[in-house]
Amino acid sequence: MTRSALNPSCRRWSITLILSWLFTGVALAAVVGGLGLLLIESAPAWKHSGFEFVIGKKWFFRQSEFGAAPMIYGSIIVAILAMILAAPVGIGAAIFGVEYLPRKWRLGLKVTVELLAGIPSVVYGLLGILLLRNWIYEVFQDFDPLSGDTLLTAGVLLGLMILPTIMTLADDALRGVPGTLRLAARGLGLTATETALHVSVPQAFPGLLAAVLLALGRAMGETIAVFLVIGRQDNQWPSSILSLKPLLESGQTLTSKLGGSETNIAYGQPLHWGAIMGLGLVLLSLVVIITLTGAWLQRISFRQHQQHS
């Protein structure tokens, strides 16, 4: 304020200011518009099915039965499976990088892992359809899977795909632990491993959890690779939620449904299209909840360390 008083040529509105806000506004409008569209377009389905849309177990579009529960189940199971497979490896690799490797090597490791993140999902899908589904089919032969298109196949493929996300976020979390703590621990005579296990990991725990959750969100949104190997079988509601048997059966996720032929069939028919958009909304809600939790944990972790240092 005082500066503008000193400088008579100063206008409050500069081009930079206007443009910056304008483009921020455009970005925000796009986000809000997209969300609004999902809500409006999915309205017919909510009107038709109500809450039954989320908990209903039957999806037969020809009979206008729309229940998304089996797809929600598929999405969650596949993402959790991916997480169980990827989290130990990703966090392990991050620990190795942060606690044992010199800086240069650690960056090299990180570049390599992030390169892995760049491989397009259609390429993963191609490898999945050609190699992984046959491999799963043969390896789990004793459990007699009907084919190689299983939730497990999709989960393993997704696990590979989210490994870099976990590793890179875990790396951040571990790096966020103040070096002074580490030094103090080493000074007390702890080995590097003991320091890692008793100081770094507990300190970084919320951050590590956040890494896992954010990766989980990513896994849930993946479409193309899952589409090619999951079998796309509707109405696969398990007899028991905790049963492992469905892992070796085909299934459907929210994304594989959205990427499939029904999106084209539904186009132009308000109710069916509404159901498809409704699936989109359910998917978005799931991902948003997971991401918010992850971001919240990350903040906790960050605050904690600021207090320490």
Binding site: I129, R232, D234
Partner: peptide
């Protein structure tokens, strides 16, 4: 509800394997 296949090659590939 069965596992679904789309394209012709996808069908042939999955049945063959």
């Amino acid at each position: 509800s069965f596992p679904e296949v789309g394209g012709n090659e996808e069908t042939r590939n999955k049945v063959a394997s």
